[in-house]
Computed example of a mutant assay.
Amino acid sequence: MAGIHFQFEDFKQLLRLNIGIADRLDENRAESFTILYCDLSSQKDDKIEAALEKILRASDTIANKEKDYFFVFPYTDKYGAEIVKKLFDNFFGSFLNSFLISYPANGESADELTAVLQNSVKHFCKKDLDYLDLLK
């Protein structure tokens, strides 16, 4: 299927769009969408493309900065996103350095979500995502 790929510079706008849709359509404010960060630096580009094509749904969105990939899964809680993450692990044959956060549980705005993601990835994955600070 493959998700829809966005320019990395539009990542915060993509989050704002998903927040707006969730606020309009999700009255119970459950985990309206989940963001999966994956470090794919050990993977070859053609294999990454094949994985995206095979695993992602048409409603999923992707933004990447080099081989740091950010996936947004609408109407998917952390449990569902963890299943997708395991599909990636199996496809690549290795455990990927990754982290999951959800809206609104982990943040109420694009800025809050990216700050939580940045701090969590730095702490748990030992990877610096300071470039997220530069997004508008």
Score class of each variant (00 low, 15 high):
residue 94 S to W: 01
residue 123 H to L: 14
residue 8 F to H: 07
residue 34 T to A: 07
residue 25 L to W: 02
residue 58 A to I: 11
residue 54 K to A: 07
residue 123 H to E: 11
residue 86 K to W: 10
residue 88 F to S: 10
residue 62 I to C: 08
residue 11 F to D: 04
residue 73 F to V: 12
residue 88 F to M: 12
residue 45 D to M: 03
residue 11 F to N: 05
residue 128 D to R: 06
residue 29 R to V: 10
residue 64 N to H: 07
residue 121 V to N: 07
residue 66 E to G: 03
residue 58 A to F: 00
residue 48 I to G: 00
residue 47 K to R: 00
residue 131 Y to T: 14
residue 110 A to G: 15
residue 53 E to N: 02
residue 2 A to F: 00
residue 52 L to K: 02
residue 109 S to P: 09
residue 4 I to R: 01
residue 6 F to H: 02
residue 57 R to W: 08
residue 99 F to Y: 12
residue 36 L to F: 08
residue 82 E to N: 14
residue 92 F to I: 14
residue 38 C to D: 00
residue 91 F to G: 00
residue 125 C to A: 15
residue 136 K to D: 13
residue 92 F to E: 11
residue 11 F to S: 04
residue 113 L to G: 04
residue 55 I to P: 06
residue 79 Y to D: 08
residue 31 E to C: 03
residue 22 A to P: 06
residue 91 F to D: 01
residue 1 M to Q: 04
residue 31 E to T: 06
residue 73 F to W: 04
residue 74 P to R: 06
residue 120 S to C: 11
residue 100 L to D: 07
residue 122 K to S: 14
residue 15 L to R: 01
residue 132 L to R: 03
residue 96 L to G: 10
residue 94 S to D: 15
residue 23 D to S: 06
residue 7 Q to S: 11
residue 133 D to A: 14
residue 9 E to R: 06
residue 23 D to H: 03
residue 86 K to F: 12
residue 133 D to P: 15
residue 2 A to M: 06
residue 7 Q to P: 09
residue 48 I to T: 03
residue 18 N to T: 12
residue 129 L to W: 02
residue 120 S to Y: 02
residue 35 I to W: 00
residue 46 D to V: 11
residue 114 T to N: 02
residue 24 R to T: 10
residue 110 A to F: 13
residue 84 V to I: 15
residue 127 K to S: 10
residue 99 F to N: 05
residue 40 L to N: 02
residue 120 S to I: 09
residue 83 I to Y: 09
residue 58 A to S: 01
residue 129 L to D: 08
residue 55 I to E: 05
residue 112 E to G: 06
residue 124 F to R: 02
residue 40 L to D: 04
residue 39 D to W: 09
residue 97 N to V: 13
residue 63 A to G: 07
residue 48 I to V: 12
residue 90 N to M: 04
residue 66 E to R: 03
residue 25 L to N: 06
residue 43 Q to Y: 00
residue 8 F to R: 03
residue 96 L to E: 13
residue 51 A to M: 05
residue 47 K to A: 00
residue 106 N to F: 09
residue 84 V to Y: 13
residue 18 N to E: 15
residue 110 A to Y: 09
residue 34 T to S: 14
residue 70 F to V: 12
residue 111 D to P: 12
residue 46 D to Y: 01
residue 4 I to T: 14
residue 22 A to C: 10
residue 106 N to I: 10
residue 128 D to G: 12
residue 50 A to N: 04
residue 120 S to W: 02
residue 9 E to H: 10
residue 127 K to E: 13
residue 48 I to Y: 02
residue 83 I to M: 10
residue 32 S to H: 03
residue 103 Y to M: 09
residue 19 I to K: 02
residue 44 K to I: 06
residue 69 Y to D: 02
residue 78 K to S: 11
residue 76 T to H: 07
residue 20 G to F: 04
residue 72 V to A: 05
residue 128 D to P: 15
residue 15 L to M: 13
residue 48 I to H: 00
residue 126 K to S: 14
residue 77 D to K: 04
residue 69 Y to L: 05
residue 87 L to M: 13
residue 122 K to T: 15
residue 20 G to L: 07
residue 61 T to Y: 05
residue 81 A to N: 04
residue 105 A to K: 05
residue 63 A to N: 01
residue 52 L to R: 00
residue 122 K to M: 14
residue 28 N to W: 08
residue 4 I to H: 01
residue 38 C to M: 11
residue 123 H to M: 10
residue 67 K to A: 05
residue 83 I to Q: 08
residue 79 Y to M: 09
residue 110 A to S: 15
residue 106 N to T: 10
residue 43 Q to W: 01
residue 31 E to R: 00
residue 118 Q to K: 15
residue 69 Y to E: 01
